[in-house]
């Protein structure tokens, strides 16, 4: 019976490949290790969570090559997208913007 259960829970290997590849290309393009990226990711989440109520499981990160010309000056750019649920209301009134 375990076999049948495995059949239903087994992740499709195509999806596994896609996820591995995405992470791999982020680190390849940015020329940094996956561990470093993971650290950036968690620090980013920690700092943004102080101000915004976010879905931390839906953070998407990618590295693009900036389209600026000339091509030889192109640098990798890290993009992050995260769904914001709400601005943390208890902070809204307290934040002092620097003048």
């Amino acid at each position: 019976m375990v076999h049948i259960a495995e059949l239903f829970t087994r992740k499709n290997s195509g999806e596994i490949a896609r996820k591995r590849l995405k992470l791999l290309l982020i680190s390849d393009r940015a020329d940094c290790s996956p561990q470093l990226l993971e650290m950036i990711r968690s620090d980013f989440l920690r700092s943004i969570s102080r101000y915004l109520d976010v879905r931390d499981d839906e953070l998407r990160m990618c590295v693009i090559r900036t389209p600026a010309a000339p091509v030889t000056d192109r640098l990798p750019a890290i993009c992050a997208a995260i769904p914001v649920l709400d601005v943390r209301s208890h902070l809204q009134n307290d934040i002092q913007l620097p003048n």
Binding site: L24, R65, R74
Partner: peptide, 21 residues
């Protein structure tokens, strides 16, 4: 090909080609 290793290498090649003209 639709494999992790081939696509990774293709991405590297694309990066090198984009730096050319």
């Amino acid at each position: 090909t639709p494999e992790v290793s081939a696509i990774r290498d293709a991405d590297r090649i694309i990066g090198l080609l984009e730096a050319g003209d």
